[in-house]
Design a protein around this nucleic acid. Sequence first.
DNA 1: AAAGGCTCCAACCGCATTGGC
DNA 2: GGCCAATGCGGTTGGAGCCTT
Length: 289
Amino acid sequence: MSYKSLDKPKPKIKYRKGLWSPYEDERLRNYILQHGHGCWSTVPINAGLQRNGKSCRLRWINYLRPGIKRGTFSPEEEDTIITLHNALGNKWSQIARQLPGRTDNEIKNYWHSYLKKRVAKTQKLEPLPKTQFTNSTMQEVIESPVNSNATNSSFESFAKEEGSSMDVTPSSSNNGQSLLPKVFFAEWFSLSNMYNNNGQEDYQVTNHISKNINLTYNLDNLDLEEYLTQGDTYNEGSYSNIELLTEGENVVFDSAFKIEDQTSDTTLSDLFCVNEISNNFFMENNVIY
DNA sequence: AAAGGCTCCAACCGCATTGGC
DNA sequence: GGCCAATGCGGTTGGAGCCTT
C-alpha cells in the first residue's frame, strides 16, 4: 500500500463561473443581510452557492451592496473622475472613494468606454496641465482620515479648485454650517475602518473618527429616535465630535452602522447613523453594511 | 434579414498586500 | 522571519446587445 495515497491533494471544487442568476443574487443578498459577510471564503458555503468567495465578494461590492448607485454618471461625477484621474492615474479604488455609490469597477469601465475618449478629444483642443493639485495637497486629500486639519483645509482648497458644485464655505444660506461633501464623509466612515475581520466594531477607529470629524452636530432633520431600539438613549448635542451631515432636507450617509464607543471619554452609545438612498433608510437586524 | 464589427459592462485573473499563526 | 490564507486592486476578457453594411 502506498502512503502517497494518504496525502492526496484536496479535491478541486468546481465553482460556477459567469453571470450571476437572480436566484444566486437572492441567496447571497439574504445571507449577507442576515449574517454579514465575515470571512468571504465561507460565505458561498454558508449561503449554499457554488461560487468562490472572491466571486461573492465582487458580486456584493459591485452589484448587491446597498447604496450602489446605478445608471448614468452626472456631469459632476464625470468632472470628478477626470480631475482625479488626471492627478492620480488609474487608482480606481481611490477615485471611487470620492464618488459614493460608485464602484471602482464601474468607474474603470466608464473611463475606458467613454471618458478616456472625451478627455483625449478635449486635450487635442486645449491640453490640460498634467496635475491640477500639488502633490502634497492631493496626498492630504487621499489621506484625509488621518489628519483632521489637513482634511478640512485640503478639502476646501480642493473644492475651490473644483468649482461651485463642491463649495464648502459656510454661508448665511446654510446657517454657517460647513457643507462638507458626502464624499469625504463616506470615506471617513468606510466600513473597512469600522469593523475588523470578524465583523466586530473597531473601537479604536471610533476614537479615530471622533478625532477627525470636527463639525456641527445637528439632528434637526432626522428623527433619530425612530432608529434607536427600545432602551437606547442619546442626547442630542452631546456627541460633540460627531456630525450628521445634512444636505438640504436629507441626512446623507453612505453606510449604515452603529457606533458604540465604550473606551473614550466622550459618550457615544448606540447612535445609529443611517443611510438614505431614495428616501429609504436602510438598516436591518443591526447588521452593518 | 443576416453577418460582421463595435461597445459596454460584468466578471475573471493574477499580482500585491495584509494579517494571523 | 517565514509561510499561508484572505483580501484588495487593476488589467483583461467574454459575451450580450446594438449598429452598420
